[in-house]
Structures are given as C-alpha cells and as structure tokens.
Write a protein that binds this DNA or RNA. Structure first.
Lengths: 211, 211, 211, 211
DNA sequence: TGATAACCGAGACGGTACGTCACGTCTTTAA
DNA sequence: TTAAAGACGTGACGTACCGTCTCGGTTATCA
C-alpha cells in the first residue's frame, strides 16, 4: 500500500503572487469592466507571468469570481436590528451603497446585468442579493411586529427592489452620491408613501418605538 | 479660375447603405451589447464594406448613438394625464418597462452604467431620463393639486429613481417579467408606504405567520 | 456577367516589407540554424508584425525556402568550360565553397542533413546539388574527349561527391578556410591519384587488382 | 560531539538511474537529433524526474557528451595494416561509414557542423576525427614505403578529407547506402585518379557517345 | 456627353489578446 | 543527501479580431 496521493508536494503556490493577481484583477475590472478584461494586462501589472494566471483560473470568469469573492465577503451580512423600520432600511441602503460604490462592485453589477452574463459571474452577483433578501425577511418580520408593515399586502421583494434599484439609479445612472438627505427621503417614501402628513394616526406608536 | 470649393460634388453617399447599416447595428446591439459590438460583423451582415462604416462613424459609440436615435425618440414623451396618481405612476412604469424590455434599450442602459461609458452613450441614455423627469414634474404637480403628494417633503427625483430603479432591478438583475401585480404593488408603496391602513393590530397574525 | 475575380484588389503587399523579412530570416538562419528559428524574433528584427509573416508563409519551412531561394539562385550555374579538367574542377570547387561559406548556405546544408529534414528544405538543398550534377556531366564529357577521364570506370557522381564532400569536411567540420593550395591539391588527387609520378611499376599489379 | 563531516551520508546516487538516463538519451538523440533533444522527454522515458538529469548535466551538450562517450570510444582505432593502400583506405572508409550510419553518430556530426555548435559537442565529434588522422599518418607512411604515395605532394589531410567527406555526402545528403562498389570506386580515384590507364585514344568512342 | 471628385469594395497591415505548450529553474516534502 | 513533485518565469507558438491604410473601380453630378 503506497502512500495515498499527496497534495502538498512540489513547490507550493505563491500566496503573494495570488494576492497580487487578484488585486490587479480588481483594478482592471474597475477600469475596463468584465468584457474589457485583458489577462496579459493583468499579468504585466501584477508583475507575474501570463501562464501563472491561466494555471490557477482557466477561464476569465473564474478569475473574476475569485477576485470578487473577498470583496463580496467583506461587505456582506452586517445587518443588525436597529430597533426601527426606518433605521433598518437606512442601514440596508447604506450597505447596498457601499457595494455599489466600490469600482469592482459596480463592475460586477454591470456585468451581471449585461446580456450574456456568464454563469459564474451571475451567481456571484446573485449571492449577495440573496443574502440581502434573507436579511430583508427578518427586517420585515420585526417591522410587522411593531405594526409598521402591512404584511398582507407587501412582500419584502418588491420593497427591496425599490430600495436597491433606487440606489443603482442614483449611483450608476445619475452618478450622484448617496447623500444623507437623499437616503432619508427614500426610506421615508417606503415607510409612508408620498401622501401628505395629516390624516395619519399610526405615527405615534412608531415614534415611541424608534429609540 | 478654378471652381469655388464645391461641397456636393462627386458620388453622393448611399442612403440605403446607411439605413442597412443602422438596422444591422440594432440587431447586433440586441445580440451582443455595446461592448461586444463588432463592426466587421455588422459590415458583413449589412453586405457592406467595413470601411463604409468607419468612414461615417469613426467610433463605436457614435454608431450606436446613430442607430438608437430614432428608437429613443419614438419611445419618449407620450405620458398623458390619467386622472389619478396611481394611474400616472403605472403609466410611467410601463413606459420605462417598455424601454428596458427591448434588447437594444437594455444594452444601452447597461453600457451607460459601466465605468468608462463614453460621453455619447451616456448622453444618449441620459436623454430619455431627462425627458421622463420633465414629465414627472407635471405628474407631481397634478398629484399635489389633488392632495396626493406632499410637495414640501418629496421632490420628484427620488421617487422617480425608485420607480425606474425598481424596474431595472426586476428586469435586469432578477430577470423577472414586470407583471401587472408587481407593478401595482410598487406604485402602491410609492403612494402610501408599507404601513398598515389605519388601526391595525398585526402582531397576532404576524406571529402566526412567522413559523 | 460580372467581372472575373480580380487579384490585384485591396492594399498591395508591401515589397520592402517582404524584402526586410527575408533578409532578417537569413540572418536568423545564420545565427540559430533552421531548428532554432524564431518567428517573433524575425518579426521584431525586421520591424514588422508577426502576422505579416504568417500571412505570407504559413509554415516555417516555406519562409526558409523563400529566404534561401534568392541566395541559391544567385550562386547557381555559372560553370563555364575552362578548357582543362583541372580548371573545370577547381571552378566547381570554388562554387561549392562559395555556397558553403555563406552562413545561410551553411545553415541550409546542415538543415538538410539533419534527421527529419522537411520536404521543402530538402528540395531546396537538393536543387543546387542536382544542378551541379548536371554541370558535372558536361564537365566529364569534355574531359573524356580530351582523354583525361576514363568514362568506362568513373561515373561523375562519385567524383562529384568527393569534391563537394571534401569541401564540406574542410569548411564545416575542420572549420578551416579553403586555400588555393588546398584546392589545387584536392583537384590533383582527383585527376591523377596519390601515386608518385615517375616509376610507375606498381601499376601492373594494381591494374590486375582493379577488376 | 557531533560526528566528523561524513561524505557518504544520505541517500546514495542511483547508478542505475544514471545508466537509464544515458540510454534514453541515445534513443532520443537518434530520433530527434541534438537540437531537437528534449530533456523532459528523456526524463519521462527513463522514468526519472527531470531534476535528476539537470543536476548531473546542466547543459544539453554535457548530457549528449556523456551519452556518446562510450559509443565513440568503442568505435575508434581498430585500424590495422592490411598490406595495401587500397585495403587500408577501404578499411578506413568502412570505419567512417559505421560511425555515420548509427543515428546518434549522424546526429552528433550534424550538430557539430551547425553554426553555434557548443564546445562540448565539437570536441566530441573532433575527437574521433583526430584519432583517424593519427591513424592516417601510419597509413601514408606505409604506402610511401611501398611506392604508392607521393609524400612530397600529398599530405594526408586533404586525402583524408576527401575520403570522409565523400562518405558524408553519400550518406547524409544523398541518403544512399555505402555499397561495396561505391566504396571501391572512391578508393580507386584516390589511388590513381580518373585518368585512363595508359595510351588511350578515347576521342572516337567519346565522340560517338556524345549524342 | 464627358470630366471629375467622391464614394465603394477589397484586402494588406500593425497591433493586441488569445490560450497552449515546452523548457529549465526553483522550492518544498519524503525517503 | 538525493529524489520526486510541481509551481514558476520565460518565450514561442499559431489564430482571431480590430481599426487603419492604400489601392483600383464605380457612379452621380456638373460643365
């Protein structure tokens, strides 16, 4: 019985090399987008040989996925209960904004929206979306308990799309920053619509609750 | 004694050629998006030499702009007064949806969101956006007169971003169709928020629901 | 009836480019031999794009053949009747020497001798060999008429091999120059052998032996 | 108190490995020649890691030299006195032919003729040449004593070059076998030249022949 | 009607990226 | 200490596009 196939033989893969490649991939991604990605350019910028990239990630998609993974993981699920619906929504908005503000997050989103988005990229972009939707469920449940959300009528999905989509519109299309005021307005509309104030009874209970 | 500089001498440019090129450009746009556009491919499909394309539109963006011009102009400002805020909003939503549903409209939007979007493309995509915002002003004013919009608090822009952005999210990211129900829900949230109607004691039902 | 297919359409092939490529190919050939030939290196040296080479000569062999063709043609059949066998042989020897002295001629010869010599190269190297053999036939006939050559016994081929082979040995293996003296000696042996001039006694026994 | 520096520590060098490598090198040499030699290929065939080859013979030339050493030594100086000049020359010719017929000998010769032949290879190929020339001296001296060689006129070198070179031409360029008849003719020319035997009036017959 | 100037098609060209392959060096673990 | 394993830098390979360029041929307009 010979020793089982050993995996840690030979010269080990250079960690710094890998790091450097992914870093430059992100930069490249930010500058030229997914479709404009050039492996030779990344290799040169990372001071690494082209083949060292192909060895690890045979396809462009895998490389992009690897490069974005860390970024995505880092900006992921730090959604906590803020105690009020407005607080929860503003928090979620700011998380979305953070992801869309990083050039790579932006590149990823654009890539996943374009026509023939590769599976790997799509999944990658879908992943935080799914996580956010899961978080949204909790958010809605808490709001419902506080009497702030009409669960019968409004599923989390549509509201979540409004929140995220509006940030996308602001940041990517209008190319305006997400100011505090803009953010508060958006949340306010979600909570109580554009109707005038007056005949509104439930504000009191909400006011009490929110801190 | 030579003739004064004449501008209309020689063989005139072939109009049918131009038409054919733009037509194929639209098809190409729908299939491969802006960044994946191949001018040689268009030339072949249009049975035209690629030189004939480069001569007229030196850059990809100019070609795209020319190809989309008509399309964009046609799907523009046919927003009429429906008599109610909900009606107006749903109408606007459906116009946005129409633009996002056409492959070329989709391609244009995606292209204008990517990092290094050329000025030509940006302007092109921005143009209908501006027109919609102008239309939105009228919409808001009518709503305010009816007491349906709190003009003091809500500028049209944020609400408009929510509307459009939410459609983008639904169509381009989730890749789901814009159903009637979805549309109505979205408008409803904009109008009156997610709050329960009036006095509601939702805790019990919500508690039941949550497992 | 449309015009027959025209061959001189499009931008014409650049003659100077072609010349430059072949020139650098010869240099490369001289430096690295056929097997060590590098197309990118040639392209760079010729200040020409790699693809411009591949466009004309899809395989390495064709490129080499083209590069050597001119050289070979120029050093070809200027064998004239010198009036004496010794003169004819010396002349032929000097032609061979000229070909072997040029680095490209040398490279070609070496290439055609190596194991897996490609057909194109082989034919190329064989061509001047054939021409020389044809010339040799005339040479021998003239010598026979003068009573200088025993046609019954000696076919041109073997003698020709001795002449050429000995030059190869001298130039390529010993790496010594072909001096006038060396040349005269070689021819002398061919004409009258190594036997001493005068007392030609042992000829009888030798005559018996030889057949 | 550590042990004194020991030289025979650790895993000993595998002699069988070395033998196996050189064996496969010969095979490779025969198949692909010196310039086409692939060390990884040899390593695989010898079931040995390529590092083990590079450790011992850093350059291709050294490896080839090592592989050929035995072969060359064995086919060296077994030239004996046959009693006649013709016999001696034929014997020498057959020794040369033997070396040129083995694929590795052929590869070595070709390699040593190419432009940038490394010193190791050159020396390797030169070695048997030198030995043959030494043998030639004895041959000539014996012939001179018998009155068969005009020492005043003909140094051994040129004649030896004709002999060897002609074999090279026949085997490597023409790629014809060295037949008995060919061999005898060549020697005959060396001994007595191409001239007719004595008084010949060949003009008539030759004239008839020429067309 | 003929000249003429612009247009058009064809294709060579430089450039760049592609992904693959082989080589020789190196760094590590196992024997 | 040596062997095996395998990552790594280097560089050639041949292909595929792209956008520019330079031609020769064509065609509508004006004199």
């Amino acid at each position: 019985m010979t020793a089982a196939k050993r995996r840690d033989l030979g010269r080990p893969r250079g960690k710094p090399i890998e790091r450097q490649i992914l870093e430059e991939t992100l930069r490249e991604l930010a500058e030229h987008g997914v479709s404009g990605l050039s492996i030779p350019r990344i290799a040169e910028a990372a001071q690494v040989n082209k083949t060292s990239i192909y060895r690890r990630w045979p396809t462009k998609e895998e490389l992009v996925a690897a490069a974005l993974e860390d970024t995505l993981r880092s900006t992921a699920g730090e959604l906590r209960d803020t105690g009020s619906l407005r607080g929860d929504l503003e928090q979620m908005l700011s998380v979305v904004a953070a992801q869309l503000s990083s050039p790579s997050g932006r590149a990823l989103l654009v890539a996943s929206m374009s026509e023939g988005a590769a599976a790997a990229v799509g999944a990658l972009a879908g992943d935080p979306m799914v996580r956010r939707q899961e978080a949204a469920v909790g958010l809605v449940m808490r709001a419902a308990e506080r009497g702030e959300w009409d669960v019968e009528r409004y599923l989390p999905d549509a509201v979540f799309a409004m929140l995220t989509g509006s940030a996308m519109h602001r940041l990517l299309l209008e190319r305006q920053p997400l100011t505090e005021a803009w953010s508060r307005t958006t949340v306010e509309v979600l909570v109580r619509g554009v109707r005038p104030e007056k005949a509104v009874t439930p504000r009191t209970s909400a006011a009490k609750r929110s801190r």
